[in-house]
Every structure is written in structure tokens, then in C-alpha cells.
């Protein structure tokens, strides 16, 4: 069994330092790794990244993140990633990591993702250059996620994004903004590559549980949705392993 702790949208600045730490110190008792689904900071500054590292760095379990849209606000996303990486935190963007946890391999492939919408109300690659750029950025992110997922060899595979891959976990958000909260292309990538679990954030008023059209469980772990320091998901439990053997 692998125990994955997850949260997103923690928006750390100096005023948040110390709020999460007591719960994070208990992580080794309840989880084998911590995955963070973007929006680590408020404005994406290096100073805020240092506050994030003060709060989420130096933990007894590995930490893997993607960035969110807030982490891009100051155009310092590369410097923010460097601060995190220097602190031993893995930052994924169209890339993957494999963690050896108690003899099992947890694969995590991640991308920030982008908007674009879902089903019959998705954006189309048509018209003004700005509209085509909007659609292209979302498609490109999804393609890079699929490539990252496909290249991982592991026992359990998690897709980690900031933007949502399905509309079900946006329930509670106004439908008018769904196109800015996620894209069906991310869901398509997850289904094409296959994954044990998909985690995302971004939708503060959304719903925790959903599933891709291909059946992959999706969890919206935005902090205001889960309303605690992190959620814990158990992968490859004994019952699940028996099911896999007989599938």
C-alpha cells in the first residue's frame, strides 16, 4: 500500500508560515509522500517561494508539486521553481518522478495545465489569434501530460495538475467559468495514458470527487474544498492488488 497526502492552493506568504507546520510534522505517521496541486504562493514571487519552503520544506516525506496560475503572476515561475528544487522539493511541468516507497514505486506525472472547458461548451481553435493561442496552450499542456504519464514505469501512477481534468469536481463553481478552471484535454490525456488517480486544485468552490470518462478517480484537493491541511489517499491496498491480479 502507498499512502499519498495531497493538498493544493495553499497560497503561502509570510502570514501563513506556521499554520500548516504542526500537521505537516505528523505526515510520516499517516502518509508516504505529499503531493501539492499548485498555487503554492499568492503572487509567485521568490520571497513567497521562500516562505513556502519554510513551511513545506525539510519534511520527513518526499514532496512533489506542480505550479499554479498564482505562481505565474509575477513572471518569476522559473526562479520560484529553483527555490523549491534547491530545498529538495520536486517541481513537475510536463515531467515525471518515481518515488521508491516501502518497496513500491509511486510514479507522479505533472503539469500545471490550463483552461479550455469541457464537452459541448469547450473552446475551439478558431477565429482571433488570441483565441487560438488560448486553445493551443491548453492542448500543449495536455499533450505534455500524456507524454509524461506514458513514460513512467511504476506500481501506481498519479496525474498531478493544477487545472481540472473533469467538470464533475467543479460542481459548486459557476458554469460560466468552467472554461477557465480546466480542460477536457487533460482528462483525455489521463485516460489515454492510464493512471491510478488524478489530483488537481484551482477550483476553490468545487467538489472533491469525480472520475474521468475512462474511469480514473479524480480528486479536487484545493484547500478550501478539503478544509484540512491535506487529504490522504491509499493506493495499492491489498484488496486493490487482488482485483488487479484477476483483471
Amino acid at each position: 500500500m502507498i499512502r499519498v497526502a495531497a493538498v493544493g492552493d495553499v497560497h503561502v506568504d509570510h502570514d501563513v508560515v506556521g499554520r500548516y507546520r504542526p500537521a505537516l510534522e505528523q505526515l510520516p505517521e499517516v502518509a508516504d509522500a505529499l503531493l501539492i496541486a499548485g498555487d503554492l504562493t499568492r503572487h509567485g514571487t521568490v520571497e513567497e517561494a521562500r516562505s513556502f519552503v519554510t513551511e513545506f520544506g525539510g519534511l520527513a516525506v518526499p514532496v512533489v508539486t506542480v505550479l499554479g496560475n498564482h505562481d505565474h503572476q509575477s513572471d518569476q515561475q522559473d526562479a520560484v521553481s529553483t527555490v523549491l528544487t534547491d530545498a529538495g522539493i520536486t517541481v513537475l511541468e510536463g515531467t515525471s518522478a518515481v518515488l521508491e516507497l516501502g518497496g513500491r514505486r509511486l510514479g507522479v506525472a505533472g503539469v500545471k495545465g490550463f483552461g479550455g472547458g469541457f464537452g459541448g461548451t469547450c473552446a475551439s481553435n478558431f477565429g482571433e489569434r488570441e483565441m487560438k493561442d488560448f486553445v493551443r496552450v491548453g492542448e500543449d499542456a495536455a499533450n505534455r501530460l500524456e507524454a509524461a504519464l506514458t513514460g513512467v514505469e511504476c506500481d501506481a501512477l498519479v496525474a498531478l495538475t493544477h487545472y481540472a481534468p473533469v467538470p464533475e469536481t467543479l460542481a459548486g463553481e459557476p458554469p460560466e467559468i468552467h472554461a477557465f478552471l480546466g480542460s477536457y484535454q487533460l482528462g483525455r490525456a489521463i485516460d489515454a495514458a492510464g493512471a491510478t488517480l488524478a489530483l488537481h486544485g484551482h477550483a476553490h468552490h468545487g467538489t472533491e470527487r469525480g472520475r474521468t470518462p475512462g474511469g480514473v478517480p479524480v480528486r479536487n484537493v484545493a484547500h478550501p474544498v478539503i478544509k484540512q491541511a491535506y487529504n490522504v489517499y491509499q493506493l495499492l491496498s491489498d484488496e486493490a492488488e487482488v482485483t488487479l491480479v484477476h483483471a
Binding site: R3, R19, Y20, P22, A23, Q26, V30, T196, L197, P217, H223, P224, K227, Q228, A229, Y230, N231, V232, Y233, Q234, L235, S237, E239, A240, T243
Partner: peptide, 14 residues
């Protein structure tokens, strides 16, 4: 203010 307590349970994904 969003709470930051430790979870009391875990969800099994299958």
C-alpha cells in the same frame, strides 16, 4: 479561514 487540521481518516482509491 480555512482550517489546517490533520485528517482523521484516509480514502482507499480503487
Amino acid at each position: 479561514i480555512t482550517r489546517t487540521s490533520v485528517p482523521v481518516d484516509a480514502e482507499e482509491i480503487s
